[in-house]
Design a protein around this nucleic acid. Structure first.
Lengths: 338, 338
DNA sequence: AATACATGCACAAACGTTTGTGCATGTATT
DNA sequence: AATACATGCACAAACGTTTGTGCATGTATT
């Protein structure tokens, strides 16, 4: 099928040296093993002429290094995770590693299966957005020495490093923004309930409401999806005493809200105010530019990759757990009603 | 570091059989090699108890099969390609294969380097959105027997299979839509000029204009980016005799247009009409819902993966080249001006 | 001239699988 | 009772690297 691949034997023959020497030169260990300049030249020349492409599988089998990192996210359909995946993929490339991306589809059983498959590819590290509240399978890998970093979602009580947004702060600030604009009756539409970000966002929301002495709020929903946002909004709109503002816990949920608004002829912000977690380039061009809590996706990705490789390269053990401050972007979708 | 991995030897010992037999049972070749039922049971039991995870690197080294497909796109930042990547990734997973995603950053030299790196991972197939007009390096792989499928962009004169949108048809129809709505002076903002889709879109645009006897059009731009859309729109707006409609050749370009419009206080569709290639969930919720030429991303991805595996599994040689019809979505952003 | 160290490489095993082949033993057939 | 075939496995080589070790030869030192 494929044209006969050249291997280091071919190079060795052509250069008149042993495969040991070829391997050492090609791996930049020439100095360390005192290979002569002329030999080095000969080998490099032969490799180039023969169009040599090293066989990573053989190399890994012997060395144990796969130069492969696994990334598992709950849903690549969600633009938030797609953005993270794309960023992480390119960051990891900079280290000469490749990324294998897995999608758990918000299903913990699938997550476990993916993880198993990935382990058989001898991954050297794992970046994961865990999709449920079970952590044993991840903890086990971590304890066995596999560098693991959680991003976005994480386990508060474990020592597995993570990089995420300060979700409490984001939700607290966003809620306060609504309150300061006179909103007293606010509905929050949430995503996956058992995920840490969701829990902390809810906590931030509750705390802000409680501190302001407000108790007329609702928390509904159960998925970071357009569907969920749409459904819950429709339900909210059927109440006789509607909320004056909706706090959406994701990009996708907000799109569902807008869909419902459109169908019911509800205007933002005249009839109802809306603020959402997650930024998106399109938000500025919407009928009403959408206020949002922008998560530092790019920084999260970069830092996660950096941590991973500092552990990989320096065997540094210190578990780092980092929360980055989000940025509230105030736009017209939030109306002052007092 | 990592806990001592169990291998096929450990299982063989535990089951009291040879590694040959273990391998055959675990690979489902038990019947073929007439391994007894009891032996099969013993081996499966031992594998489970020991938490055996096969070493794909060793398996591949021996068998030559890597269960790996490479995907190269010009830019993961572009939501269009991100969508494709996510879809293809999940489709390929269904076949038990994994995907390695490379980003060429619209740079042909990077594309070549990525390709080299990927080859060293013994990829069994390649799905690529080639980013330039050089095809020798891809053709070479294809001729050497590597299954290759181009998507979105492709080379018209080669026999490498491709799956893409009927870009000519999409552009022609969109332009006709504008003309039918009374537009006589239309500006087209294009992306990467030497890409086939761009060329065909331009051709569709030209043909539609010419057939209508219209010659007052312009074609500018050189990149599928927000930047480019923004810049070219600003330039267009400075003309004394402005076009009445803009035809944007991508999602990203359209965002640049809208940015410029906003800054210059231009309203869609009152002051100018806009239609763009590529659909996006947000388009419906924009200040003015954007007319678009929706490409069947999901179908393109599915078909490409299907073709790839039909070639991989059946060694079918017939090169298939497929163009899928896009769907014009007419929305308020195009105004009737006569 | 003898000794000691540096220089420049090659040998051979090993990583964990897969696979062509062959060889016992059992069973059916004549 | 002899022959033929089926059943159930094991041997051993191979995939293409990496790597610990060791051994010549050359050069410097006394």
């Amino acid at each position: 099928m494929t044209a006969q691949k050249v291997n280091i034997n071919d190079i060795a023959k052509k250069a008149g040296l042993s495969i040991t020497t070829v391997s050492r030169v090609l791996n930049g260990k020439a100095e360390q093993y005192r290979i002569g300049k002329k030999s080095q030249e000969k080998i490099k020349k032969a490799a180039k002429e023969l169009n040599y492409v090293p066989n990573q599988f053989a190399a890994n089998l012997r060395s144990g290094r796969s130069n492969t990192i696994a990334l598992i996210v709950p849903s690549l359909n969600n633009p938030f995770f797609a953005g993270i995946a794309s960023k992480i993929n390119s960051e990891i490339r900079k280290y000469g590693y490749i990324t294998i991306i897995g999608d758990s589809d918000e299903n913990q059983e699938i997550e476990k299966m993916e993880l198993l498959q990935l382990m058989s590819r001898n991954i050297e590290g794992l970046i994961i957005v865990p999709c449920g509240d079970q952590w044993e399978h991840i903890k086990q890998l971590y304890d066995n020495g596999l560098p693991v970093i959680c991003i976005d979602r994480y386990f508060e009580d474990l020592d597995i490093p993570f990089v995420s947004t300060d979700n409490y702060d984001g939700a607290y600030s966003a809620t306060k923004l609504l309150i300061e604009h006179g909103h007293r009756k606010i509905a929050c539409i949430q995503g996956v309930q058992k995920s840490t970000p969701n829990r902390l966002r809810i906590k931030g929301f509750r705390d802000a409401m409680n501190e302001a002495g407000l108790s007329d709020f609702s928390i509904t929903g159960d998925d970071f999806s357009i569907q969920n946002g749409y459904l819950e909004t429709e339900l909210l709109l059927q109440q006789k005493n509607r909320p004056t503002a909706i706090f959406s816990l994701s990009n996708t949920i907000a799109m569902g809200c807008m869909k419902a608004f459109r169908e019911e002829n509800i205007l933002i912000p005249e009839d109802i105010s809306l603020i959402t977690f997650d930024d998106h380039p399109y938000l500025d061009y919407l009928a009403t530019p959408l206020s949002c809590i922008a998560q530092p996706i790019s920084d999260i990705s970069k830092i996660a990759v950096k941590f991973l490789f500092s552990k990989l390269e320096d065997h540094e053990i210190a578990a780092k757990q980092v929360l980055l401050k989000p940025k509230i972007k105030y736009k017209e979708s939030v109306k002052r009603i007092i």
